[in-house]
């Protein structure tokens, strides 16, 4: 690996760029200075902390440490996916955690055990943590978008849904269109990014590998694997959250309970 190691002074130079944002905010009276400052500080603090934690985890190199960190990351992703939603129902947090957990872990496990056969140990933090992190970040988006699309369209199409039930539809027949719409919407971002990857955008991981001196073709191979991992985990997670929400909002008596959905 050959790359320029950054000194803290060099990092501080990059921080000057944030001054541009501050100047724009002041000039256009956007009132964003405080948020910008707060966000910049959080970026620095969170990443430095993560660096320290990762250094520690890499050094310990124990499966239970890796799994604990992975669990923590998953819980945070699950809770974040729920908190972005404008409507809530009882048990929603649990459902987002379950859907992100199941899909991200399944797909990451497939990557570690089946795809990356050459690694020494399945829990090798160098692979396990960044892979899971990327999968989680994207699954979080799919789950969050799928959940809010599903709940929103059930609320806006409530009379349609109830009319279908009154005509003799099963609960699944009544919910099918909103559910399909939600899964489709949840998967649009990842499909879009697969369409333009490399042409419009260079993904962060590939950029990192290129800077650290990896052969471009090698970096590209990793990126292809990553894209497929992300796409499948997003699809799985979105389907699971929509199904779990469906089961919560429609009962076994084929009744729709929109009262459970509170703003």
């Amino acid at each position: 690996m050959n790359y320029v190691e950054l000194t803290y002074t060099q990092v501080a130079l990059a921080a000057l760029l944030i001054v541009i944002n501050g100047a724009i905010s002041v000039a256009l009276r956007l009132g964003l200075e405080r948020s910008l400052l707060w966000a910049s500080m959080r970026t620095v603090v969170q990443l430095l902390l993560v660096g320290l934690v990762l250094e520690w985890v890499f050094r310990l190199d124990r499966w239970y440490v890796v799994l604990s960190l992975a669990t923590l990351m998953t819980l945070i992703a699950g809770v974040t996916a729920a908190s972005r939603n404008e409507r809530r129902y009882p048990g929603m947090w649990l459902n987002t955690v379950i859907s992100i957990w199941a899909s991200a872990w399944l797909v990451t496990a497939f990557a570690l055990f089946v795809v990356l056969q050459g690694i020494e140990k399945w829990y090798q933090p160098q692979y396990a943590i960044p892979l899971l992190g990327m999968v989680l970040g994207n699954t979080l988006n799919g789950v969050s978008v799928g959940l809010s699309t599903f709940t929103e369209s059930l609320v806006t199409r409530r009379e349609q849904v109830e009319t279908q039930l009154a005509l003799g539809a099963t609960r699944w027949e009544a919910a099918r269109e909103p559910a399909q719409h939600a899964v489709r919407t949840g998967m649009i971002p990842i499909i879009n990014s697969m369409l333009v990857v490399g042409v419009v955008s260079l993904p962060g991981m590939m950029t990192g590998q290129l800077i650290s001196g990896m052969d471009p073709i090698e970096a590209v191979k990793y990126q292809i694997v990553i894209m497929f991992l992300i796409a499948s985990a997003t699809a799985l997670g979105t389907v699971v959250i929509v199904m779990l929400s469906f089961l919560r909002l429609f009962n076994k008596d084929h009744q729709f309970a929109p009262r459970q959905l509170t703003p």
């Binding site: 009319t163 009154a166 005509l167 003799g168 084929h254 009744q255």
Partner: peptide
């Protein structure tokens, strides 16, 4: 529960504002 759709096919509710 499982008979609900069939029952609603026999006892049909019509909403005031049809969807």
């Amino acid at each position: 529960g499982p008979e609900a759709p069939r029952f609603r096919g026999c006892v049909m509710y019509l909403h005031q504002r049809p969807a």
